[in-house]
Write a protein that binds this DNA or RNA. Structure first.
Lengths: 261, 261
DNA sequence: CGTTGCGTTGAATAAGGTCAAATAGAGTGG
DNA sequence: CCACTCTATTTGACCTTATTCAACGCAACG
C-alpha cells in the first residue's frame, strides 16, 4: 500500500534538521579532529563542531577514518578485536547470531556513539557490526586507548564510564525485552530515537528510520508484521505519522503515556 | 513477607557437591586472600583455594568483606557508586525497576563473579543487588581499582575484560529474551547454571536453585506459571528431575537439543 | 493451627506469530 | 524509457504460545 519514499528519503532527514547544530551541548574543550568535510551531505552525520564528549576525548588516539556503505561490515563475529569505533556519520547495527541461524539485532549505534567494546573480553568480536547505509567511523585502536588510560587517570575513568554506559544500555534493553509488551517496545524505541536525534541537534519529532521493519523487529524482539501493525495503529491513534521510513512524532506525550510515564 | 529460607533448603546444596572442589580450574597463581573459614557451611561458596582469576587478581585491593542475609541489599538503585563486589559465597540477584512498579531481574551473580559495574557511568547504581540467601562479598572500592589499573597495564586490561564480559553476558541475555521461546529460555537457563556450578567445582547435574519461580520468570521474561509448567514438562520428558528448588539434570543433551545445539 | 508464601495445574483469554496476498518502489537490463 | 524483478511493507485470517485467573496443596512460621 503505502510503500513510498522514493527519491530522496535520506535527503529529507537533512531538511528536517531544525535546531542549531552547534547548540547547548556540554563540550569540554575544542578538538583537533579532521573536519567532516568529506561527510556526504545525504547522510546524517555528526555536525562539524558538535562533538560528543567521548569523541573529543579520544580524538587524539583516532588513527584513521573508515567509510562504510550499506551492508558493509565494520567487523564480524569471530574477528580479532583490535579497535573500538566512534561513529561519525550514518548508522551501524550490531547483530549476534545463534548457532541455528537465528539472528538478533542487539544495538543501533548513531553518530557520536561508540561500538565494538564487546570484543575485549575474549579478544574476538562477539557480534557483527553492519552499516545501515553510507557512513563513516573513527578507528580507535585498543592499544592506544590503553596508553591513554595508563597515562591519565581521568582518561581511564572516562574509558570505564564508556564501558559502563554500554552495560546500562543493554540493561535497559533487557528491561524492554523482558517486561514490555509489543506496543510499549515500539513506543520506547521511537522515544529513544527521538532523544538521540535531539542530542545530535536534529529534530526530535521528525526523522528517518534507517532500519527495515525486520531489523526493528529483531531489535525489539518481535516479528516485522507486528512492528508494521503497531506503526499503523499509532498512526490511526494520531500519535505519529509514518510513511515508509519517515517518521513524524505528532504527540510525544501520547507515546510516553503508552510507557506509563 | 518474603522471609523464608531458614534452615534446610540451603543445606541440600552442600550434600550435592560432588566434584573435588580444588579441581582443574585454570588458576594462574596462588593468592594471599583471607581464608574463607568464616564462610557458612550451608552456603554455596567459593571453595577455599579455588579462586577465579578475577578474584585473585583483585585480591590486593579488597578492603573488606560483607555478609549478607536473605533479601538484604548490597546496594540499591540510586545509591552512590563506590565499589564493585566479588561474590564469595551465596547468590545475588540484580533487579532494575520500571517507573510503574514493574521490575525485572537482570542478572544472577554466583560465587567468583563480580557485580556492580553498572554504577560507574552515572556515579549511581542503576539497579538493586539483593542477596538470595546468606552470602558474602568482597568489597572492591572503585578508586582502588583505578589505582591498580593505573599502575599496571596488565591490570588495566583485566579490568577492561571484566567490563567487556559483563557486556557479553548481557548480550547473550538479550538474545535469549529477544529470540527464544519459553522452553528454550528455561533450557538455556538450566544449562547456564549447570556450567557455572561446574566451574565452581560443584556438580553440573545436580544443584539448588536459589530463586523462586517468580524470580526465574522475571529473569527469563516470562510469568512464574510458565516457568513452573515448563519445569514440569521437562520432568515429564525425563530431561530433569525437579522438586521445589532442587534440580537434577538427567539428560543434558536433551536440554541442549531444545536449544537446537 | 490458622496464616502466608511458594509452587502446581487447569481453563479461558489475549497477544503475537504464521501464512498468504496485494501493492509499490527501486533497481536492472534491454 | 519500459518491462521485469526483487524487496519492503501492509493487511487480513488463522493459529500457537504464553498470560491471566482461579483453585488447591504444601511447608514454614508465629
Amino acid at each position: 500500500m503505502r510503500a513510498q519514499a522514493s527519491a530522496a528519503p535520506e535527503v529529507k532527514s537533512k531538511s528536517v534538521r531544525s535546531d542549531p547544530p552547534i547548540s547547548a551541548l556540554r563540550l569540554g574543550s575544542q578538538v583537533e579532529i579532521a573536519e567532516s568535510s568529506e561527510c556526504h551531505q545525504q547522510e546524517l552525520c555528526l555536525p562539524t563542531g558538535l562533538l560528543d564528549g567521548l569523541l573529543m576525548e579520544f580524538a587524539s588516539v583516532i588513527v584513521c577514518h573508515r567509510r562504510l556503505r550499506l551492508g558493509q561490515a565494520l567487523y564480524r563475529a569471530g574477528e580479532m578485536f583490535e579497535a573500538v569505533y566512534l561513529v561519525r556519520a550514518g548508522f551501524v547495527k550490531s547483530v549476534v547470531l545463534l548457532e541455528d541461524g537465528r539472528e538478533q539485532v542487539t544495538g543501533l549505534t548513531m553518530p557520536g556513539e561508540m561500538l565494538g567494546m564487546d570484543g575485549l573480553a575474549s579478544g574476538h568480536h562477539a557480534s557483527d557490526a553492519v552499516a545501515l547505509g553510507e557512513g563513516e567511523v573513527c578507528v580507535v585502536p585498543y592499544h592506544r586507548l590503553e596508553n591513554l588510560g595508563h597515562e591519565a587517570r581521568s582518561m581511564q575513568r572516562k574509558l570505564h564510564r564508556m564501558f559502563s554506559s554500554e552495560i546500562l544500555r543493554e540493561q535497559r534493553m533487557m528491561l524492554l525485552l523482558g517486561s514490555m509488551c509489543a506496543e510499549e517496545r515500539v513506543a520506547a524505541f521511537l522515544l529513544n530515537l527521538s532523544q538521540r536525534f535531539a542530542a545530535l541537534g536534529y529534530s526530535p519529532s521528525e526523522f528517518v528510520l534507517r532500519m527495515t521493519r525486520d531489523e526493528i523487529g529483531s531489535l525489539l524482539g518481535m516479528k516485522l508484521e507486528t512492528v508494521s501493525r503497531i506503526f499503523s495503529k499509532f498512526q490511526r491513534s494520531l500519535l505519529i505519522e509514518i510513511e515508509g521510513k519517515h517518521v513524524h512524532i505528532v504527540r510525544i506525550e501520547g507515546l510516553r503515556g503508552i510507557l506509563g510515564v
